[in-house]
Amino acid sequence: MMPGRRFLLLLGAVAAGSVLSLQSHRINPYFLDVAVTVAINVILAVSLNLINGYTGQFSLGHAGFMAIGAYIAASTTMFWAPGLLPAASSPGFIGMAVFPAALLAGGLAAGLAGILVGAPSLRLKGDYLAIVTLGFGEIIRVIFRNLESVGGALGLNGIPACTNLFWTISMAALTIYAVTSMVHSTYGRGFTAVQDDEIAAEAIGINTTRYKITAFVVGAFFAGIAGGLYGHFKLSIDPRGFDFMKSIEIALMVILGGMGNTVGVIIAAILLTLLPELLRPVAEYRMMLYSFLLILLMLTCPQGLFQPRFFRRLLSPFLRGSAAPAEDPPRPA
């Protein structure tokens, strides 16, 4: 079986990640930290883009999925795996064998929660849905705050340092690959159809329920993985790190990138992660400037910073699905 060109790109990214990771002792630790944070935010933004951008279900609960992934993954490496395999608690074994399983567990748990959080999207739209998903995220946070077995309000400390460039870059590549592959197919156009017009979508036989829930589950799965990476990178997690400001921050990446525009969202995720770093010299005004820029951007280019056409043309050899036809210049309305 011959995998497609996209798949080769994915393998390339994984290979690049492992090379970088092996050389990581030569990289300035500060840059390394920033790079890992960028990659984690790319995963979060691209996965939320499937829900918000492509399927049009405005969710502000992504930090909740991230929290689930972080807690489940950390519990796996800290408690469950050593409990099951007491012999295999060497750091190397945990890093290479337990950690991927922990990420998967975190992703699956978050995906399961995605079914629950996605359910209201069957009845609610727009800002109502936004506020309910935000509520779900907050409820998840409160639950963790009350779970004494994972540290309660104090959080969970002493998580093994398993996250490295290899895992973050591979997972970011996997997320981008999965989301773009899903969306760039006849099947995947259904997500956009749901966003554009649910009634018309049903009329051509698209099961809008299944599509919405799928978007939430897949989006939540990758957010869970991002959470797992985050926990094993920060080495300690506490419920305050997953409040709705985090959800809003991820949503901003999606909106600034241009909803449903993966390349734009990736760029926005990178920029928005770097922006606070770049603004460090003016630390006092940093967040004021940030929010002011946000309002200004919404007023001046509400479609997002990165218009799809420009970037699609620039990157067409890498991103275009095999089935997409050449683009004619659009006619004026």
Partner: peptide, 11 residues
């Protein structure tokens, strides 16, 4: 409405 919602978050 989403644009306005985001602007409101910005404000």
């Amino acid at each position: 409405r989403l644009n306005v919602l985001i602007t409101a978050i910005g404000v």
